[in-house]
Design a protein around this nucleic acid. Sequence first.
DNA 1: TTGTCTCTTGAACACGTGTTCACTGATCTG
DNA 2: CAGATCAGTGAACACGTGTTCAAGAGACAA
Lengths: 340, 340
Amino acid sequence: MSPKERHPQRKQAATSFDVARRAGVSRAVVSRAFTPGSSISPESRKKVLKAASELDYRVNQMARALNLKRSDLVGLVVSDMANPYRAAQIDALAKRLVADGYRPLLFCVDGNAETEQSISLLLNYSVSGVVVTSGLPPEAICFKCAERNVPLVIIDRGHNYPHVDQVTSDNAGGGHEAAAKFIRQGNRHLVAVEPDLVVFSVSARVEGFKHAAKSSGCELTVIRVSDPSYASGQQAADRFACKAMRNAGVFCPTDLCALGFLDAMRTKHGADIPQELSVIGYDDIPQSSWEFANLTTFRQPVVEIAATTLELLESRFADPELEERQVVLPVHMIERGTTL
Amino acid sequence: MSPKERHPQRKQAATSFDVARRAGVSRAVVSRAFTPGSSISPESRKKVLKAASELDYRVNQMARALNLKRSDLVGLVVSDMANPYRAAQIDALAKRLVADGYRPLLFCVDGNAETEQSISLLLNYSVSGVVVTSGLPPEAICFKCAERNVPLVIIDRGHNYPHVDQVTSDNAGGGHEAAAKFIRQGNRHLVAVEPDLVVFSVSARVEGFKHAAKSSGCELTVIRVSDPSYASGQQAADRFACKAMRNAGVFCPTDLCALGFLDAMRTKHGADIPQELSVIGYDDIPQSSWEFANLTTFRQPVVEIAATTLELLESRFADPELEERQVVLPVHMIERGTTL
DNA sequence: TTGTCTCTTGAACACGTGTTCACTGATCTG
DNA sequence: CAGATCAGTGAACACGTGTTCAAGAGACAA
């Protein structure tokens, strides 16, 4: 490799002024060539595009954002990236955002305080919107977003804030359907693993399950754990094993939790699933289809959630005074080997 | 909730001019109050900060970036988010970037073409740097980054581009150590699962293993699969089972692959691990410590990789003419239940 | 030819910031 | 006390863009 190649000449990035001069038009024409729907003659556009490509011209998005008082950036505040479901959701959201011309500004946080800080920081970047999949942001910060016309969409949460839209899967419906499945296949005891940690989507699943169980007259047992993690699933298995229950249907509100339960029941307690007991989870993370698990679960519609999120963002951007909306997307049960 | 609260007054964001007027100073003083190390008297700073907090002033990062010709944004180009190792890496990188005052601009891509597109897009945002953990970007785009003084760090790749820094874990060393472990514990046959798909880090692990095996005079078998995924691990198990090998040590260059292998060997082929054969993976994803797996593997130093990435970015930002560097971080074997 | 209308163009402005450069007043030095 | 030094200040500029507005060019009807 030649010395010249090793030390490339540091070029000043070409501006619209450079392009204008090369194309023999004014700078305004250059701007119009890159703005769809503006008034420009075909030959002018052609000249501009030619000059632009020769100079490797790129619109300076910072200048553009400053002028328009709005950037293509969208804040993406997420927590618990270790959960494979979250990773899938981020992946779908990020791809959808980019496909629609936005750029996701990622904040990985732990807890509500960090969520608030992140949103506050995002307001410095003229973001077109904010998507929150982490803890519930405090009302004050939501209010600030509304003040500044920054649409805010919350995924998988339940609290109602003015001007804040929400998307969730049908958590309660999934819980209900899990109970129905157990009853249909003849399980005598219904068991819900219920985390103490209050997370709207998770709580709604358990509530749906409990409600369906009670209203069908089945015997319902609740095993309380701290959170909906793999470790908590293991803990639930230990407590379940003590009760020596027969013919039970166990609903874990998260696949991670279900896999912990399943794994401990089989490996440690030698349970025969689904002969002795059935298990259903929620999320359909990739690990649930692994051979050791083969878990019956509910598939979260990550792509549809992403699409809905963008619709909500864009519609509220067009009209900030819209009433807040809550979109609930249906889930489908994926029947595998932990049910009959 | 009152009507007034439901429809918050849309405020114009306060500018440094507003703050200056309220504090009774010039706009330049306001700027200095928010610029560490600039010349300003303590009482002026105090007045400015007071006025700023009263007005909820925030510096407009777009205007700042336009002026400085540099934003706090750092491009983060990633692929294969479904791999839990990647998610952990993104999490560590994103947190570190934010802690150091940068904002990660996330691009989730599939394949090298999309990687190039993403980097090209990023150049429009005056990014302070780009971090690539997806496929290898073409040389042309690396060259453009260098031209524009945009530091580029590539994680877990091997190709040498001018002005492009690299960080990897000690892939070859890990492979070597895996072979040594098998030999030490008395395995007669060493087996490498080798993906056809060329990915630098993965290939380096296999090469390290093969080299160590050969130089120790052990019998070495290679099982070729298409990629380093869970499904490929299952496939490798099927092929391995046909050979009816005794006392083998199997190295899978990825935990996902190892878990697929392990899961299929136990569940489908009824193998007794580690009595009949031993397995070692690479990455230490959370699933590897799950009970069903209990996989011996190498822990990737995600936090150290993130820290090193930032050091490389910042040093190259200070001096763009630095020779390209390749940092190799040590890995540690986590011994679990798939080895003796 | 004259008047009207449509389409295109370029000059000027605004967006909000960081920094440069004189300039002021105070403090220190001999 | 005179001169030199120095921290602190504010006016002005530059960053690169999208859009407004008046003006020009051309087509067409009367």
